[in-house]
């Protein structure tokens, strides 16, 4: 960096590193807890879990690492599988829809001039920025009328038509040079071929960025399932609220937490660069 902050450079870096450790601490904490045996968890967390005297303490590494809790979750709890499967269906259903509908719309906005284009795009931006609570009642009334409440479609259908991925992909499609598209047109390319052979490959990082952001969003969904789904067998993993006050269940809860965040962390690790590009694209002026 060109500007040198002379004041205690090292001290500042230490603070930064401590902050960064705090950012990743939950991942470490939950992983360690999920590997601890039931007795060790009881010793460490007894104060909260079973109401014994004193305070919770937590070791840096488990004394006797064990996979027993993962085995318990994966082998003995069918309700967990149902929720996991619901999460998969919701996330990939939404992303699949966004990919098809969103790329087409983004391509239309980025490359064609049509009546009301600016106005429609502004509506898209507004919808993308509104919090769920504003649209909650209208969503509910519609889903009620369509008889989709209490089904995964109550979440998938509105998610497919979210305007956020359209905005992200639009920004990447708009950067494809005009000359390339014009020359392809002169060579006799049809309109769908332009999308298929030019936009998809050249805008791929935008599409991936939108999908990565979408995955993290829909894998962690809370408000929508809580509002639109009453049937417990239709709930996704993201609303599996751990009840830590049940004795013997602590290890199970740790394992569930780890399995819940694992897919998200994997997508995050694999798609970090795309995630950054997506965040930036979502904040730069139109």
């Amino acid at each position: 960096m060109y500007l040198r902050l002379h004041l205690g450079r090292k001290a500042i870096w230490i603070i930064l590193i401590v902050l960064a450790l705090m950012a990743v601490y939950p991942v470490i904490f939950l992983s360690v807890g999920s590997l601890m045996g039931a007795d060790e968890l009881e010793d460490s967390l007894g104060a909260v879990v079973s109401g014994t005297e004193g305070y919770v303490s937590f070791p840096i590494l488990p004394k006797y690492p064990t996979l027993q809790h993962f085995a318990e979750v994966l082998l003995d709890s069918p309700e967990f599988f149902v929720m996991f499967w619901n999460s998969i269906l919701i996330t990939f259903g939404v992303l699949g829809g966004q990919f098809v509908v969103g790329t087409m719309a983004a391509w239309g906005f980025a490359r064609y001039d049509f009546p009301c284009r600016r106005g429609i795009f502004l509506v898209y931006i507004i919808l993308m920025l509104l919090p769920f609570q504003v649209l909650m009642l209208s969503d509910y009334l519609l889903l009620d009328r369509l008889l989709l409440l209490d089904s995964l479609w109550a979440i998938i259908l509105p998610g497919m038509f979210s305007t956020f991925p359209v905005f992200i992909m639009y920004r990447f499609f708009a950067e494809i040079p005009d000359s390339l598209i014009e020359s392809a047109r002169l060579d006799g390319a049809r309109e769908w071929q332009l999308l298929w052979y030019i936009a998809l490959p050249m805008g791929s990082s935008g599409i991936i960025a939108a999908l990565v952001l979408g995955f993290l969003e829909y894998w962690s969904l809370i408000e929508q399932p809580l509002s639109f789904i009453k049937d417990k067998s239709k709930l996704p993993l993201s609303v599996f609220l751990p009840d830590i006050t049940i004795t013997d269940k602590a290890g199970f809860m740790f394992a569930v937490s780890v399995i819940t965040f694992l897919p998200a962390i994997m997508v995050f690790m694999g798609g970090r660069d795309y995630l950054e590009q997506g965040i930036m694209a979502g904040a730069v002026k139109e």
């Binding site: 950012a23 939950p26 991942v27 967390l45 751990p242 740790f254 970090r272």
Partner: peptide, 20 residues
């Protein structure tokens, strides 16, 4: 990347830590 990680963590996973 470390600072970005919380964005990826589902709230329910972190809820357990938060409560403890």
């Amino acid at each position: 990347s470390a600072f970005l990680m919380p964005m990826a963590l589902p709230a329910v996973s972190v809820a357990l830590l938060w409560r403890l």
